[in-house]
């Protein structure tokens, strides 16, 4: 009766293509604190304590908040190829 919506990835498309800089994590440096997971506005960082983090580049928009909040600077924003 109504055009309803249900939660699904890509409600605005493949937002990873928006990215001009890519967050690259150095897992040697990562202290497993979870702050990047907590602040990621996109929910593209998975974190399980003891297993550190993983970034979903299909949807990461490359805002750089994760790199900015990382207390040990374990995440580097590196230019996307072709940009």
């Amino acid at each position: 009766m109504l055009p309803l919506s249900r939660p699904a990835p890509a409600s605005a498309g493949m937002t990873g293509t928006w990215r001009t800089y890519k967050p690259v994590v150095n897992l040697q440096k990562c202290i497993d604190c979870g702050l990047c997971w907590l602040y990621c506005p996109e929910s593209v960082i998975d974190w399980e304590k003891g297993y550190k983090i993983q970034i979903d580049y299909t949807y990461c928009k490359g805002c750089g908040i994760c790199a900015d909040v990382c207390p040990v600077k374990a995440i580097n924003m590196t230019p996307e190829e072709g940009i």
Binding site: L2, L4, S5, P7
Partner: peptide, 9 residues
């Protein structure tokens, strides 16, 4: 029950 009505088409 995460159902939404009224977001952009």
């Amino acid at each position: 029950e995460p159902v939404t009505f009224g977001n952009l088409p």
